[in-house]
C-alpha cells in the first residue's frame, strides 16, 4: 500500500510537471467542470420547483449527493480512467511488455501510472459543494456519521476501481474493449440522482452490476443518517470482495497474456 502511494506520488509529480505547460487545458477543464455542476444543480432547481422532496430526499441532501457525484466522478477521471485506458492501449500495442518487466507489482503499477491532473477541478468543486450542503445539514453531523461517510466513500471508491480494473482486464481476452468503458460512464451519470427513484431492474444494475450507487447514494445516506449499519457493513464486505475478485481476474488476465496454463 505504501509502495503504491510512493509510486503514485512519483507519477503524479511527472504528470503535474507535464501539465503545467498547458494552462489552457486548466481553463477548458474548469469550464467543463462548472458546466457539469451547473447542469446538475439546474436539474435540481427544476425538480424542486415542483416538489419539496424527491423520494424522501430534501434539497440539501440532493445537493450533497451532487457534490459527492462530482467528487467521485472527478477522482475516477483523475486517476482510474486514464490508467485503465492506457492499460488497454498497451495490451493492444504490446507495450505492456515493458510494464510487466518492471520490478513492482504489476497491478499496482498499471493502476497508478497515468493521471489527468486537471480533473482534480471536479474533485475540488464537488468537495466545495458537499461542504456547503453539509453546512446546511449542520448540527446533526456527529463524528459517527463522518466516519460512516468516510468508510462508505472508501468502500464505494474501491468497488468502482475494481469494476474498472475488471472491465479493462477484459482486454487480455478481447483486445478491443475501449467501448466497454463507455458503459460505466453512461451508467455513472445515473448516479447523480438517488438510486431509489429508479425502477427495480435499473436499481439492481446500479447496485450490483455496475455499482455506481455504492459510490454516490450510499455515502450520502451515511451522512444524513439514513444508512443502516447493516448496509454499511455490507458495502464494506462487497468492496473487499470486489478487490479480491479484481485481483484474481488480473492474475488470470496476466496468465492469459503470458500463456501460462492454469
Amino acid at each position: 500500500m505504501i509502495e503504491a502511494l510512493r509510486l503514485f506520488a512519483a507519477f503524479v509529480r511527472v504528470a503535474v510537471h507535464r501539465e503545467v505547460a498547458y494552462r489552457a487545458n486548466l481553463v477548458a477543464q474548469t469550464v467543463q467542470s462548472v458546466v457539469g455542476l451547473g447542469t446538475a444543480l439546474g436539474g435540481l432547481a427544476v425538480v424542486f420547483a415542483h416538489t419539496a422532496t424527491l423520494a424522501g430526499w430534501p434539497p440539501s441532501e440532493l445537493v450533497a449527493l451532487v457534490g459527492v457525484f462530482q467528487m467521485v466522478g472527478g477522482a475516477i477521471g483523475f486517476a482510474i480512467q486514464p490508467a485503465m485506458q492506457r492499460l488497454m492501449e498497451e495490451v493492444r500495442t504490446g507495450a505492456l511488455d515493458f510494464t510487466l518487466l518492471q520490478p513492482a507489482d504489476s497491478q499496482v503499477l498499471v493502476s497508478v501510472r497515468e493521471v489527468s491532473v486537471y480533473r482534480l477541478t471536479d474533485v475540488a468543486l464537488g468537495a466545495a459543494l458537499l461542504g456547503a450542503a453539509l453546512a446546511r445539514l449542520g448540527a446533526r453531523l456527529g463524528p459517527g456519521r463522518i466516519a460512516a461517510f468516510t468508510l462508505a466513500l472508501a468502500a464505494g471508491g474501491a468497488v468502482v476501481y475494481a469494476v474498472w480494473l475488471a472491465l479493462a482486464t477484459c482486454a487480455f481476452w478481447w483486445v478491443r474493449v475501449d467501448n466497454v468503458l463507455v458503459i460505466f460512464e453512461t451508467l455513472y451519470d445515473a448516479g447523480r440522482w438517488p438510486v431509489s427513484i429508479y425502477p427495480g431492474w435499473l436499481r439492481g444494475a446500479l447496485t450490483f452490476l455496475i455499482p455506481v450507487a455504492l459510490a454516490t447514494s450510499v455515502p450520502v445516506e451515511a451522512l444524513t443518517g439514513a444508512l443502516r449499519g447493516r448496509t454499511l457493513a455490507l458495502a464494506a464486505v462487497v468492496a473487499a470482495a470486489a478487490l479480491v475478485l479484481s485481483r484474481l481476474l488480473w492474475r488470470a488476465g496476466l496468465r492469459a497474456y503470458s500463456g501460462a496454463s492454469g
Partner: peptide
C-alpha cells in the same frame, strides 16, 4: 528488454521525465 519496434518511453513527455519514473519504479 529493448525492442526496436516498440517504445517504453512515453510519447508525450520528455525522456527525462520517463527516466525519473524509471528511477522511482526501480
Amino acid at each position: 528488454l529493448v525492442t526496436g519496434q516498440r517504445s517504453q518511453l512515453q510519447w508525450d513527455i520528455p525522456a527525462a521525465d520517463s527516466f525519473e519514473l524509471h528511477r522511482a519504479v526501480y
